[in-house]
Amino acid sequence: MRYLENVTSLEFFSDKCTGCGRCVEVCPHAVFIMNTRKAALRDKDMCMECGACTRNCAFGAITVNAGVGCAAALINGIIAGSEPSCGCGDTSNACC
């Protein structure tokens, strides 16, 4: 299944990549691929902006505006004039 084309905020800076392979490991949509010495974008439009690659890139070679792809969260955010929030887990229902 694919979503809208040419919308993702994902950017990859090949010059900073050391080829550690973490991005390939964490991406659930195989957006990255390992070439001989470095990672490369394989299918950018599959990106769902979860942010796993950015957070696990120790070399700052990847940027993405990560967030929830959820209409209710975005509409709530617009109405409240705040960051998008899906409301789940924000209340203190911590167990212990």
Partner: peptide
């Protein structure tokens, strides 16, 4: 149906924002 974007495994925030901009 647009609300279901919150439950899928492949929709992105930028994509949903684009949808909302034209749909609302």
């Amino acid at each position: 149906a647009l609300q279901f974007t919150g439950s899928t495994t492949f929709t992105s925030m930028s994509g949903v924002k684009k949808e909302i901009r034209f749909a609302m």
